[in-house]
């Protein structure tokens, strides 16, 4: 009995110790970003590896907000990411519902299509997409980015939404349909409320992906008026590569919205994937 208790305690210590390692590994790079962003320039070199500077300043943030175009980039990114998230989730909900509830001809072909769309380096389609969007006036425009990002995100978002729908028993909407509701009504009144966590997770996932995208934002849009945050940050880094304080302050600003969103939605992601995970 004694040995049993001891083993249990040992297991607990080991468990907590390992988790602490993971926490440090996950958070330290973010902590360092924050630390350098509040370190005054004169202390940056003299106190290089100290964990926290002896004096902190918010000057870097102030100059990023007041003297750069980051507020504009921030606004552009917010518009593009939220529109992409809404549009992708809408389209993917339809496809996910279709896959979850119907067996139909061409289903395997569509799944294959979605799989192939994940298989190649996106660099390869930059030029063709540019040629496709240019005559439509969709290059150097936020709308163009929204269209492109939506297409990129729909396959994975569909997979997510399908696994959320799979977790909702069919009997629920069938019962509603027997009671005289059309399928679409059943979808809206019965299924939709149950799938709100799934919608939140998918929205958050797509928002994060769109917020991060660099390549197409860089290649399709050239003017500052249509630049997103990643492009602005990259330009800033190549122009002022020694101003570490300001670069990291801009980086922290870029992190705030996605981290806040992710913090809220991550448990829905786990929940939603649980439903679809065991299917063969």
């Amino acid at each position: 009995m004694r040995a049993h208790v001891l083993r249990r305690r040992l297991f607990r210590v080991l468990h907590a110790g390992l988790l602490a390692c993971f926490l440090v590994f996950a958070l330290f790079p973010l902590f360092w970003l924050l630390k350098v962003s509040v370190t005054p320039n004169d202390l940056l070199y003299s106190e290089g590896v100290r964990l926290w500077p002896s004096r902190i300043t918010f000057d870097h943030y102030a100059s990023v907000i007041a003297h750069t175009e980051f507020p504009l980039f921030f606004r552009n990114s917010a518009i593009v990411s939220s529109s992409t998230a809404l549009l992708s989730t809408l389209v993917a909900s339809g496809a996910g519902y279709g896959f979850s509830r119907f067996a139909f001809r061409g289903r395997a072909a569509i799944v294959g299509l979605m799989l192939v769309s994940q298989m190649f380096p996106l660099v390869m389609i930059v030029a063709p997409i540019f040629r496709l969007l240019s005559p439509l006036g969709l290059t150097d425009s936020l709308t163009g980015l929204v269209v492109v990002y939506t297409a990129f995100n729909v396959p994975f978002a569909t997979f997510l939404m399908q696994s959320f729908f799979d977790g909702i028993p069919r009997d629920l909407e069938e019962a509603a349909m027997i009671d005289g509701a059309k399928r679409f009504q059943a979808l809206r009144l019965v299924v939709l409320p149950l799938t709100l966590p799934g919608l939140a997770a998918t929205l958050g996932f797509v928002f994060t992906a769109a917020w991060s995208e660099l390549l197409f934002a860089l290649m399709l849009n050239s003017s500052a008026a249509a630049s997103t945050f990643p492009v602005g940050l990259l330009a800033f880094v190549s122009k002022f590569s020694v101003d570490f304080g300001q670069m990291m302050a801009a980086g922290v600003l870029a992190l705030i919205p996605v981290c806040a969103l992710f913090f809220v939605i991550q448990r829905y992601l786990v929940q939603g994937l649980t439903a679809g995970a065991v299917k063969g």
Binding site: A26, P29, L30, W32, L33, G48, S212, V237
Partner: peptide
């Protein structure tokens, strides 16, 4: 769980920059 999953929310290019800075002897440990 929320904290340990946080790196996934970091934009990929920013995590590249962040790690480049961590490896940089001037500002990184």
């Amino acid at each position: 769980q929320a904290l340990v999953f946080l790196p996934w929310a970091v934009p990929s290019f920013l995590s590249g920059l962040d790690w480049a800075w961590l490896f940089n002897p001037v500002v990184g440990p």
